[in-house]
Amino acid sequence: MNRYLRELSVAGALGLLLLAMAIFAPGFYQPQPLLSLATREAPTLVVACGMALVILCRQIDISVGSQFSVCGVAAGLMAAAKVPLFLVVPAAIGIGALLGAINGVLIAGLQLPSIVVTLAMMVTLRQGLNLQQQGVFVNLPDGVQWFGLSQLQGQWLVVAIAVLLTVLLGLALRRLTAGRWVYAIGSDAEAARLAGIRPQLGTFLVFVVMGALTGFAAALNLVQAPQVQPLSGSGLELKVIAAVVVGGVAISGGRGNLWGVFVGLLLLAAIAPALIHLRIEAYWEKAIQGTIILLAVVTDSIRGRAPKHPARSH
């Protein structure tokens, strides 16, 4: 029971928020806006799953927002050039995986601190995109939005795909040997090495998967609008890190699971619309996100889940 305390308490907080909404702002519970909200957050969920893997490995990736934008624009340009969607999606995944691999080589191969590497990647990719795109939106041809389905069907499909992917990844993390290796590497890389696991290879692959998931998330975002905004992913990194940390994944690695991340993301996703319904201005969102990250790590530390190495985590 105690093992899931964190997940349950986050779920409890979500429940309280939803209850408060039911009492003070019942207008929140309308099926169509809720579905739209879920659809908007679906790509975020996919990225958060990847981020959970990265943080479980005791690393961090703050370049996911820029990766997301790059994949989105690249996929959009391809779609605009009439490449069929069933090729665009794998291409987006591939581009993401490639970007992740660059991070992976620098972090796992050269043992550079992930925070600085991904900070540099974040800006390089973002400004590179600006340079290429000059802020111009990519217009998509017909048949791309909602996979050519009706909006309602498309929305359900996007949400279903994201949830299905989360469930599959969650199961893989729990039930496949490779999933357990992620925990082992994040818990104690040296003990992992002694147990015959290759921590550097594992970390590299986790960054590749992170990139691939980001690419896929960008594709899920692509189909939601008639055009692609060049900076669709800005600020995404903070949102997913917040979701992962709030969901109980320890920043010191090796602890947490995707169910917690799922609930954490629901909580964070509900905050912005809740603010609007509760007539608190939406400008507070970023401040609240920051506060939630800090509160989550502070409670972790107080509950004795403090980082094993109080210095910087590399």
Partner: peptide
């Protein structure tokens, strides 16, 4: 041992 994992998982790993 892996401090974050359970006894069973440690043995298994």
């Amino acid at each position: 041992l892996f401090p974050d994992l359970t006894v069973m998982e440690n043995i298994a790993l």
